[in-house]
Design a protein around this nucleic acid. Structure first.
Length: 379
DNA sequence: AAGCCGGGGCA
DNA sequence: TGCCCAGGCTT
């Protein structure tokens, strides 16, 4: 076979799919538009194996569009928490409300109308329409991009507009007239299980016979990698403020930016004095301060060095008037959205905190007031 | 430690 | 239109 055409590509793929594709994913068992939508948005950022438990949990909490639309955003973020990209949970919630309003409680079955909803782009709209409605709509997710870039030796990084256009063009032309749901699922499955980024299984690939990259012996060169840049490093301090009962102060972050809409302990400048900040900004009297080991978090565009600072109050604090603030049990923060690293940090902090109170009850009441702002006792 | 991922937002 | 952004996971 010299190369795949729109006549030969789909049959070869579908034959493979019948034997080796995935047919029992949770959202395939009852592929309603709502369930396909939720799964597609989750799969935009996370691999299937990780998504499955989150999907089950999400559709149990919010079984349909109306339930999701009526739920408080905090609850949606809470159920989403751990998946990352929290703007997507907000978009899900917004889109559910819009669809309930404008489309009579259903997701529209039209691509332009779907794409008008927040968080639904061309590929996600096409996935919903093909997988749930059987419409002939081409998809182009990361798996499809890799399969097509290799099969047709498409040069360049798929993030650029020209490469994107070529790949969409191929996707449109190769999408068959019938069995589109199976075909689209097959493209994603092949990319996920056979035409993988590293160590692809070309020896068992149904498309290898006409794959240009395979013929050239350059499968690893497609698709071209994103041009890389150096990540800037930012520094912050994160204040773990505990009252005598062990409750920790959390603040809801603004909707845009890092950890948007999630609850996180107060974040202050890396050179700010934690105890002074607590007194001046919050009016909280501090009994003891302890600097905890630095930890580094990587995001796509920068790295964040977080220096956690534990602060213990002399007395129980009154609740802070602003509704964006709350006191929470670090082990069971309740129905709040928390970023995964913060969740872990709170658990750790609870361990330290209970040791401190144990020591205190033995009689060690000395307030080891480390000077905050100075260098931490860290080797 | 670096790559990955689909869509939103902004100049 | 062309950038920049986000976050947990795999490799």
């Amino acid at each position: 076979m010299s190369s795949w055409t729109h006549r030969t590509f789909a049959p070869a793929l579908l034959a493979w799919f019948a034997r080796h594709g995935r047919h029992d994913l949770p959202w395939q068992r009852d592929p309603t538009p709502y369930r396909v939508w939720i799964s597609e948005v989750m799969l935009q950022q996370t691999q299937v194996a990780v998504v499955i438990p989150y999907f089950e949990r999400f559709v149990t909490h919010f079984p349909d569009l109306a339930t999701l639309a009526a739920a408080p955003l905090d609850e949606v973020l809470h159920v989403w928490s751990g998946l990352g990209y929290y703007a997507r949970a907000r978009h899900l919630h917004q889109a559910a409300q819009q669809a309930c309003h404008a489309h009579g409680g259903h997701l529209p079955a039209d691509r332009a109308q779907l794409q008008a909803l927040p968080g639904i782009g061309r590929s996600t709209a096409a996935a919903i329409l093909s997988l749930a409605h059987g419409q002939r709509q081409a998809i182009l997710d990361g798996n499809c991009k890799r399969v097509l870039a290799r099969c047709f030796a498409v040069p360049g990084w798929p993030g650029t507009a020209p490469v994107q256009r070529q790949l969409w063009d191929l996707a449109e032309r190769l999408t068959p007239l019938a069995a589109v749901a199976d075909y689209n699922q097959a493209m994603m499955d092949l990319g996920a299980t056979c035409c993988t980024r590293a160590q692809p299984g070309c020896d068992r690939c149904p498309l290898a016979a006409g794959c240009q990259a395979y013929r050239q012996g350059r499968v690893a060169d497609y698709p071209a990698a994103r041009p890389r840049r150096r990540l800037p490093v930012r520094q912050t301090r994160l204040l773990l403020i505990a009252d005598p009962s062990g409750a920790v102060l959390l603040q809801r972050r603004p909707p845009a930016g890092i950890w948007g809409g999630l609850y996180v302990p107060p974040v202050i400048a890396a050179d700010a004095d934690p105890a002074a900040w607590c007194r001046e900004q919050l009016g909280l009297p501090i009994r003891r301060v302890e600097m905890l080991p630095l930890r580094r978090h990587s995001f796509t565009h920068f790295q964040l060095d977080i220096e956690p600072v534990a602060l213990w109050l002399t007395a129980a604090a009154a609740s802070i008037g602003d509704s964006d603030w709350c006191w929470a049990d670090p082990r069971h923060p309740g129905r709040l959205g928390l970023p995964t690293p913060i969740k872990a940090l709170l658990i750790e902090f609870h361990g330290i905190s209970s040791q401190v109170s144990a020591n205190r009850s033995i009689g060690d009441c000395t307030t080891t007031a480390n000077r905050a702002g100075g260098s931490a006792h860290r080797s």
